[in-house]
Design a protein around this nucleic acid. Structure first.
Lengths: 148, 148
DNA sequence: TTTCATGTAACTATTGATATTACATGAATG
DNA sequence: CATTCATGTAATATCAATAGTTACATGAAA
């Protein structure tokens, strides 16, 4: 999630396509990992990919039209909470009582998180970034900001 | 978390100490795992352990005095969220903007979850269990409810 | 003094996430 | 039109965290 948003914002600062290799270097990972993740976003229409010379990844949507929740969903809605119920349909009544209470708490927290993510657009993140850029050197280019 | 609460409520239904072996069988795990987890709770004063014949684990506190958050903290406050920021103190301004937004959302969700856990006591869970018990066979004994 | 139970360190196994390798497809370039 | 560059994807490997196991020590009750 964090890494994907990072990548998307860097792409927004570019006119030409960015290769998986360049992104992988910046994120300190492997190009194939980038392709796997981006493939999901492409299938949902958030980015485009081009093969061959001058190819790579480009944004397919206006930043203002995409919320963090959109991205979360495009990533396949991975589980947000680190803990959960031991079993899903327990026969034991004790466990049923425990599950009921925990599920209530978990669901509420998850719902809040999702609504917070829905409140923030990529455009807002980009604006925040440009605000931070003022008064700093021009270290915003992908390769420079992530120099080894 | 789920498993620990389960164990504590079963212990509450008993007068004599419960052995790690009995609990392990019910939780479908190993006695040593039970001891490791319970040792933490004992150090925080929530349960007592006794060696030798007739030994095992007993509750050390009134169920009404213990909230789910207390148990969570006694377990060492494991991280609640499954996702987080890629790096903690990023030099990249893009990442700083991403982190700031995500951290806000994460912190809010975590705070809500903790407050929900603080609202529920073991006594409430026990009461819910006994309510569920009405109109059901007497399948509440540890070994019966968790028969293979 | 034997049995039962916890206490704990050390080790092993399992699992999920991430990374890597290998090869195929397709687009630009000279 | 062959070469280079880039993505697409399956198969495999690595790694770290969690859980489980073994082994042995301690102490209490029978």
């Amino acid at each position: 999630m964090s890494g994907v948003l990072h990548v998307l914002l860097h792409m927004a600062e570019r006119d030409e396509p960015v290769t998986s290799e360049a992104l992988a270097k910046a994120m300190d990972t492997n190009p194939v990992v980038i392709r796997r993740v981006m493939a999901g976003l492409r299938d949902q229409g958030y980015v485009r990919s081009e093969k061959g010379h001058g190819g790579g990844w480009t944004l397919a949507r206006d930043l203002a039209d995409v919320s963090l929740r959109d991205i979360y969903e495009a990533l396949g809605e991975p589980s947000l909470l680190a803990i959960g119920n031991r079993t899903e349909k327990p026969g034991c009544l004790v466990e049923q009582a425990v599950n009921a209470a925990l599920t209530r708490a978990f669901d509420d927290a998850e719902a809040l998180l999702l609504s917070r993510l829905a409140d923030v657009t990529l455009a807002q993140l980009s604006a925040d970034f440009h605000k931070r850029l003022i008064g700093r050197g021009k270290g915003h280019r992908l390769e420079v900001a992530h120099a080894k």
